[in-house]
Design a protein around this nucleic acid. Structure first.
Lengths: 224, 224
DNA sequence: GGAATGCTTCGATGAGGATCGAACCATGCG
DNA sequence: CGCATGGTTCGATCCTCATCGAAGCATTCC
């Protein structure tokens, strides 16, 4: 009986430690090769390969072949959002940790969530965008206001809807437990932050570290 | 190897078909007993009990003992949100059938979500109840207005809060991606729809099919 | 008290799937 | 070409865990 989407199938794909590590590594937004992912997950290459084909068949990954390299990446922002949601629950449920390490702290402040910014900074930014009525909250959705459209356009950020991906989307933040901005606009803002060198990505981590002047610039543009 | 929150542990809890069915059943927001959940999942009572203790230990469920009954419910809205996210991916990834069968289409229009109505009809109804100020949106909750109380009372629908179950509750709709009405009021409305023979439940399915005259009556009362 | 109901624990069984070494394809390089 | 590198497939092994019947607690009803 019980028809409907096969949720157990999807969840069990994420439910294996090796696969979970791979997906977690891919949350950084860059596509990785099978060997990199094997290393990341701590399994042998054949094992990793087997997992990867399962994830592919499950529709969670995309594959881009380039010469003899094969780059695996998350299939969609929706998949990334799902993983964030699972991380959020795992985080909430986790037995009280001794103390969050320094890397954890940086992750809480700002990190990459697939292709957009997450963490305290990102949550604060979304709040501020609502306050300034650049974005409007509608039911469970987020919409760009006319004022917002011209504002972002002036910053050199395009806000036209392309393909089927929404411009604005709320994404629940596991560290802050409130929403931050995803969608093409969220991605474009992160692009700008990196392009302007306001912040750089920490090596081998999802953490995003702002420079002192970069932080000022970011706050001036998005938190003022 | 990165040691973040144990996402595999959480995902694997959802990754078993029996447990997934239980969680899915609990998405309605009502707490259920172990035997009801066993039936829902199609497993024996001992098996269900074993799954339930695992879900409890994983922090996904809460337990309320009342006499010899033990009511299991989702631990938090965060857990519900995670399950919704997984459903969303499963839905998006589901192998496109040649064409959505008639039953699938019917499911999208109207279906039972444990004990209340879901689908396009249900989402439209909730919108309309807000428009008419019979229900009020408060924070993330839904409250019955005085006007609403007398309105439903006139229809022969009792709206007194009984036990611990809320009268109104929002439930996210996987097909429409917006909220519909759950809670005792949602259940009572579905009861009325069936009692008035405006619609009947499709055998062995969650689909709810309105008769032509039944649809008119429903629209007059709830969508006008 | 005793019987009935609701649920959990125990024990035995079985199946699925994660794992790795070795062998096998494919691409690029000299 | 032949060799090296990146990746997948195959086969065998092993272990976890889902499952259910039977027995054991707990609570309520008569």
């Amino acid at each position: 009986m019980r028809e409907g989407p096969d949720i157990a199938r999807i969840a069990s794909l994420v439910g294996d430690p090796a696969r979970a590590n791979m997906l977690n590594a891919l949350m950084g937004g860059t596509a990785l090769t099978a060997s990199e992912l094997a290393l990341e997950a701590g399994v042998s290459l054949p094992t990793a390969s087997s997992h990867l084909s399962k994830l592919m068949e499950g529709g969670l990954l995309t594959l881009a072949s380039q010469g003899r390299h094969r780059y695996y990446g998350l299939a969609s922002a929706q998949v990334a959002g799902m993983i964030e949601a699972i991380i959020g629950v795992a985080e909430a449920v986790r037995p009280k940790r001794v103390r969050p390490g320094p890397r954890d702290a940086a992750m809480r402040v700002a990190r990459v969530c697939y292709d957009h910014l997450a963490g305290e900074q990102a949550v604060a930014m979304l709040d501020r965008l609502f306050d300034r009525k650049l974005l409007l909250r509608e039911d469970n959705q987020i919409r760009l206001s006319p004022a917002g459209a011209s504002h972002f356009s002036a910053l050199g950020i395009e806000t036209h809807a392309k393909a089927r991906r929404p411009v604005c989307r709320a994404c629940l933040d596991w560290s802050v437990r409130r929403s931050h901005l995803a969608g093409t606009l969220g991605a474009a803002i992160l692009d700008k932050i990196i392009a302007e060198k306001w912040a750089r990505r920490e090596k081998d981590s999802r953490a995003v570290v702002f420079s002192p002047t970069g932080r000022q610039a970011f706050e001036r543009v998005f938190l003022s």
